[in-house]
């Protein structure tokens, strides 16, 4: 378990402000955000390398705010693996095990086998590939059986095939070792794929946290919407069309330049509308269903496997997705005029 309560940390000119987050025991959480958001500083605070000015840190049920790193039972893996170059692979993995005993050698071999690097145990670090190095770093961090594993963009410098292989190994090891993981990433897809919890960070604070699906579906700000890949985030203004119902919501109009959409709102005034690409229905003629019909000109088609991204102009650039089969069925080409339909309830106001 990892729990931070209103933690503020100053690292040089940078400040991490009022961070509160809780990852349950055995959970897998991701910290995502742009460069300079404070993700690594937060991991280093949990590991004990940075001392908080205020706030408290708990690990596995025990308050560790004042404990040094060596007494926190935390494993740490950096993006650039940081293996000890003067030691062999086996010596790196066994570093935290405290001496060469039969049990320690067995543990080293066990992790090496699980990560597919048993054949490299006698090798020098300089002769390893990037993927092999990251596997060794992971084995080294897990060897002393930490209850918490902190990963700082561990897959960022790997090619896609190696990355996927290592992700599978990591998930298997997490289940096996029952370790709580907090991983830094700048990739929201990774959060959807791996995480039970995601926290979006920017400028030293957490903007939103929750299950990845919820953060993806209901971003609480334009920044989170953009960062989680919402596709279309439009700045504009909401004006009321109807009276508020019992739940406080009312039918309204969102305008952004020449674009006007019927939406369900909770308040009027300036805001952002999020139109998820998959919620924009593409057709040659306006569909009977749906409250908003936008006439769009296709600018570019981008095929990514079974999905085709349609970049169009509706007075503003927007992106919609259809299946590649559907795009081929409609024989869509750049320059075509199509209709985009979106339900008023599918327009998310943040």
């Amino acid at each position: 378990m990892i729990r931070l309560e209103l933690v503020t940390v100053r690292a040089g000119a940078f400040t991490l402000r009022d961070i509160s987050i809780e990852v349950p025991a055995g959970g897998y959480a991701l910290l995502i955000g742009p460069t300079g958001a404070g993700k690594t500083t937060l991991l280093e605070t949990i590991a004990g390398h940075q001392a908080p000015l205020t706030g408290r840190v708990w690990l596995h049920g025990e308050e560790v705010t004042a404990l040094p790193p060596e007494r926190r039972a935390v494993g740490f893996v950096y993006q650039d693996h940081l293996l000890f170059p003067h030691l062999s692979v086996a010596e790196n993995i066994g570093y935290g095990l405290g001496g060469r005993t039969t049990d320690n050698e067995r543990r080293t071999l066990e992790l090496a086998e699980l990560l597919g690097i048993a054949h490299l145990l006698g090798r020098e670090i300089a002769r390893l590939s990037g993927g092999e190095r990251q596997r060794v770093a992971l084995a080294r961090a897990l060897a002393p059986r930490p209850s918490v594993l902190l990963l700082d963009e561990p897959f960022a410098s790997l090619d896609p095939a190696t990355r996927n292989g290592l992700r599978r190994s990591l998930l298997e090891l997490q289940r096996r070792e029952r370790v709580t993981i907090l991983q830094v990433s700048h990739d929201f897809d990774e959060a959807l794929r791996l995480g039970d919890l995601v926290a979006v960070m920017a400028d030293g604070g957490i903007l939103q946290q929750g299950p990845p699906e919820e953060v993806f579906r209901r971003p609480n700000s334009a920044f989170v919407a953009q960062f989680t890949g919402a596709g279309n985030v439009l700045a504009g203004e909401v004006s009321a069309l109807g009276v508020a119902e019992e739940d406080g919501r009312f039918l309204a109009r969102f305008t952004s330049g020449p674009l006007a959409l019927d939406v369900v709102a909770e308040r009027t005034g300036p805001c952002h509308a999020v139109l998820r690409p998959e919620d924009l229905l593409v057709s040659r003629e306006p569909l009977p269903a749906g409250r908003n019909h936008l006439t769009a000109t296709i600018e570019r088609l981008e095929r990514v496997g079974p999905v085709t991204y349609i970049h169009c102009d509706v007075g503003r650039p927007v992106v919609a997705t259809v299946t590649t089969q559907g795009a081929e069925g409609m024989a869509l080409t750049p320059g075509d005029r199509v209709s985009l339909t979106i339900k008023a309830t599918a327009v998310l106001l943040v």
């Binding site: 590991a47 040094p68 494993g75 740490f76 170059p85 935290g96 002393p144």
Partner: peptide, 23 residues
Amino acid sequence: LEKVARTLGDAPMTAFRRVTLPL
């Protein structure tokens, strides 16, 4: 590298002796 050594259980002087000094 010293930070990694610390999370692996080394006190500051031990991390210095085992990692920084040899390197």
